[in-house]
Each structure stands twice: as C-alpha cells, then as structure tokens.
Design a protein around this nucleic acid. Structure first.
Lengths: 215, 215
DNA sequence: CACAGATCATGAAATATCTCACGCTCTCAC
DNA sequence: GTGAGAGCGTGAGATATTTCATGATCTGTG
C-alpha cells in the first residue's frame, strides 16, 4: 500500500464547490478538513476546522445552495468547527470524484495553507499513477511525499531505537507509568535481564524523544 | 460538536458482515480499521490493519461473497494491510448504517480488542442520543468516553487538567525532558511558584495519562 | 580488514524523587 | 446551606533515580 501526499494549487478547482467557495471568503481561513464522508444518497458530510468570525462562517455556509444541513460550533475565539451536509451535485472532475472513481482512499485530515491544499491519497501504485494522469490541466499538482503507507507505526515512536521501544513498552505494561508506580527500574530490569540503570537510560531517552512532541 | 466513544460487545453484529466474518477466523486478529469510506454506488472501501498469516487473510477475504476487489500488503512479519472493496448489501441495521442514517461521522481508526470494538462517533448531542436509542438489542454498547470533540487539540493532552497541562508544558519547555535533564522539580516549582512535590505530582499524573496511550 | 560512530551495558556515589497523610478550595447537586 | 467529590498544595522520610566514566558491541563504509 503506497501513499502520495499531493500539494494542489491554485485551488480554483478545490476538492468540492463549497471548498472552492470558502477560499473566496476574505475573513475565513480553512485550517483542516477533519472528515470527508460520503453517503449513499449522493451527499457529502464534511467536518471543517475553520478560523474566522462565526457569523461570517455561518453566512458563507448558509449562502451556498448545495448545503442541506449544517451546524457550527465555536471552540475558542476564532476557532470554529463546521459540520456541513452537502448535496454532491456538480462535482464532476473534482478531486474527490477522481480519487473515489479510482478506488483511492483520501486520508483525512486534509490541511490547507496559503498556497493551496495538501491531500494524502492511499492506494496501490497503479491506481495512484492513473489518478495523477487524470488530474485536470487547470490544477497544478506537485507530489510532496510518497512512500509506503504505514499509519500503524505510531509516528511518535518511530524515532526510538528498537531497544528503547522495547524497554519503554515493557515499562508501560508493567505499570511503571501508573500512579503510584507499580514497578521500579529494578523490576523492569529483571524482566529484560539487564541493569536498572540501563532501563533508566532507555526510558529517559524515550521520554525525551516523545514528550516534547506532544506539544 | 460532541463525540462518544463506544465499546461494542459482543461483535456478533459487527459494523459490517465482512467484519463479523473476520472475527470468526481463528488465525486472524483485527487490529484497527484505518479507513471506512463509502462510494455512491453502494460499495464500501475498507482499509484494515490485521495480524495473521497472509495466506489465511487472503483466503478469508476472497471467500467472502461481498468482496468486489481487494489487495493485501504485508508489512513486517504478521502485520498486514488489507484494502477491501465491498458490496454494501445486507448491511441493514449494522452500525455503519445506523451512524450514517443519523448524520454521524465515524471517526477512524476503529480499534479492536478481545472484547469487541471501540468506535468514536461524532455529531451533535441530539443525533448521538438518537443513535444510541436505535442500537439493536443484541448489541451490548457501553459508552467509554464522551465529551467535546476537539481533534485540533492533541488528543493525548485533553484528558489532563489545566493545571497538569500547565506544569507539564512548563517542564518540557524548561528542558526537564532533555537528556541529561536541564532542570529539576525545584527549578520548575520556582517558575510556577509552588512546591517541588506539587510539580512532581502533576508530572507523574500527566505522564501516566499520556504515555500508555502511545502504544 | 579496520575505522568511526552509534548504541548498549555496567556500577558507585550524589542526590533528586516518590509516597503518603493531611488539609484546603472549588463545584455541583440536593 | 451542606455534603460529596475532584482537584490542588505541602512537608518529611524512605528510597529509587540520575549522572558519569568506562568499556563492550554492533553497523556501515572505504
């Protein structure tokens, strides 16, 4: 299973008309599209994370004729979640149709930046190649990343060495991170048949590799 | 926007017939369902992460009459990704239909464990309530987590209290998680104007809330 | 092969951490 | 108001951790 992360610009043909429409709104910024689900009845269910004034967003969405149903939830300040249920009319040739026609999975979240949007498509090499060739000419596409799709390996843990991960996982399972701790370094060292200070070193390095990335 | 994480057991009514079928296979373990996409033509596109022998998985999937197309990719050892394109026939009353009929978003990945499956549904309170009431009697459902859906804020940190997060973040920024540590509890306590043991307590609780979820 | 660099392992001394018991302050519900 | 529960804060003593220096082992490269 391969993946391709594509950067699309400009977004005059966005993945869907309402998305294109949102780009034209001065005071709304698309942050991410968290979900993009399709219903049998030819409708889309979108969950956006947007920033902008709630009223501007409300207006933008209700103005759009394809919107069947929507809901807007403010989070903090200008952060807004917009749940939008859409008629899927007039989407021929748009990215979402292209991907789905070729049996590709669109990996949410889709992120947006000043230049356009970044979408990860998942599927086998043949399908990915075909969809790339089918991209309409008006749409500038550049491939940002490509490789084996491997979401199973937790991103944060991939930077650890095998040994670090082994020690870390053993510690977690043994209850070292419970409150209060259920085991000591020595107990873990016993399980792993090594010195307590070895356990410590691996755990310290594992924590230092992982924890700062949580923020 | 609210979310509910449900634990479903037993899985005799799984989210889809092929999912139910996989549970009956001795030598296949469902790890997660990474994607669950629907096509207009009443088909599903699933991307599973499974463990088991590749041949057993191949057999299980090809044997199923609803499978239109599939692809299996080995990763390491027994880890396998299975891309399955399915006819959506016979799914009345199954979870995926229930959720979608009520305009709820199913938040992948869906995880599986010995007891059943864990699914997070996203939508407003009314919709979530309605779908809970519509759950068939044969299906045991327990609500594991509920709250405001807020994927923008890192999931792992949402379970912390404000104070825990504040202390945790201060510690990270001060270099407490560097190797070697650049500050002690006391230094952090100085910045936060509290006792060192208070810092410790918050950090311990924060770690215990976060670290086990990395695996 | 032989070298460099990274990772892994160890023990001892210095010291930072952890547990626990106690009490305070909120908030929520009755 | 008042009681229950959750979160926050503190100090002291027991004890687990951390650092550091040293060396072994592994891995890739010319």
């Amino acid at each position: 299973m391969k993946y391709l992360t594509l950067s699309l610009k400009p977004t005059d043909r966005a993945f869907h008309p309402i998305d294109q429409y949102l780009t034209t709104q001065e005071h709304i910024t698309r942050e991410t599209l968290l979900h993009l689900d399709i219903r049998f009845n030819e409708t889309y269910l979108l969950l956006y994370h947007l920033t902008g004034s709630r009223s501007a967003i409300e207006t933008a969405i209700t103005t759009n004729e394809n919107v069947l149903n929507h809901e807007i939830v403010s989070v903090d300040g200008n952060d807004v979640y917009a749940y939008v249920h859409l008629d899927a009319a007039n989407t021929e040739g748009h990215l979402v149709e292209l991907a789905y026609d070729h049996g590709l999975i669109i990996d949410t979240p889709i992120t947006f930046d000043a230049d356009g949007m970044n979408v990860t498509l998942v599927g086998n090499t043949t399908r990915l190649g075909t969809v790339l060739q089918s991209v309409p000419e008006e749409l500038t596409v550049s491939v940002q990343h490509a490789g084996r799709y491997d979401p199973g390996t937790n991103d944060l843990l991939t930077s650890l060495t095998d040994r670090q991960r082994e020690v870390f996982e053993t510690a977690v399972e043994a209850g070292y991170y419970d409150v209060p701790r259920r085991v000591t370094h020595q107990d873990i060292a016993g399980k792993l048949d090594c010195a307590p200070s070895t356990v410590d070193e691996h755990l310290r390095k594992a924590e230092s590799a992982v924890v700062p990335h949580l923020f």
